[in-house]
Design a protein around this nucleic acid. Structure first.
Lengths: 173, 173
DNA sequence: CCGAATCCGACGGGATACTG
DNA sequence: CAGTATCCCGTCGGATTCGG
């Protein structure tokens, strides 16, 4: 869904060192005892680049929407035609009292997954037309990661919900 | 940033079974040989609920934006005041030729993290005012997951980029 | 049945100004 | 310095229509 150019990072060079120097000057000023872990963390970020244009963040944004977790998890089960996928995703989302996914965003999402190499599109020119979508090996790896996230979230669900409750209560007093 | 009620799922019961039956009827119809892995996957999704309103997807959406990966990773390095955090995040994002994060979204993000129990807010009523933010243990776990995602993305960066290139080339022909 | 095009409401996110 | 409010714009996402 993003048409950005995804420019490769040209970091890791001298700019990174100068930057770290500037950050050190900024931060240590008000809090002298922090340098050790701070420095290694900042170095990690500076090297890999986690800015909005970085590939990791682009991927995170692509998957961090309303439907991707569900769509990709379902797709991990096999090969689907768009109409099938729409029906399955919609039915499953109804469990949580959510609306159906529209065909528009379904196809758009599938295309963006295909663009990054997460799904494979196979089209026959029959009549009526038929198109199949399934995950690539890379896509299966991605789903594995998503699954880990989901399981972690479910594991921490009680903690998060009590935090939400405590926060909301202390708000409207 | 989302004020939704995050209703708990009431799945896993009979509705799930009826739903699976309906899905089975829909899917096996056009493709009889798929039942085994499909069924277990659908069952997983039906039980845990990965719809747009589910807590996992809410969390994924919260983190799946422009700034969260960077913000949370930086926060993992220690305690920060908002102005410090803004400066660090902005400087680091400049590596990727991105703009700075605005104070508006910075504070909004911090509040939503705090709401879910990922960060802790400590405020003194001094003058001038001072506020410190740092990660909770839960937040540190979250950052660990984000770090894994980022490392995976970086590991697959070449694959993804070549996929993008191939896709875009086959587009404008 | 696939999917592109159009219209439209909602939200994310940036810039600025203002209060405590 | 922390935080909120206002304004604005670009994008996301839903509903509908049309073509192949």
């Amino acid at each position: 869904m993003s048409e950005a150019g995804l420019p490769r990072y040209h970091s890791g060079g001298l700019a990174g060192e100068a930057l770290l120097e500037e950050l050190r000057a900024t931060l240590v000023h008000g809090n002298p005892e922090r340098t050790a872990t701070l420095d290694t963390t900042l170095r990690f970020v500076a090297e890999h680049g986690l800015g909005p244009q970085s590939l990791p963040v682009e991927i995170i944004q692509l998957v961090g929407d309303r439907w991707s977790a569900l769509m990709l998890t379902v797709l991990a089960a096999g090969t689907f035609r768009p109409s099938e996928l729409q029906k399955v995703v919609s039915l499953l989302s109804h469990i949580g009292n959510s609306n159906s996914i529209s065909q528009r965003v379904l196809t758009a999402k599938l295309r963006s997954y295909e663009r990054l190499g997460f799904v494979r599109r196979t089209a026959w020119d029959t009549v009526p037309p038929r198109t199949d979508y399934d995950l690539t090996p890379l896509g299966h790896e991605l789903v594995k990661i998503i699954r880990d996230i989901v399981l972690w979230c479910l594991d921490k669900e009680d903690d998060v919900r009590s935090a939400i409750q405590a926060f909301d209560e202390s708000e409207d007093e």
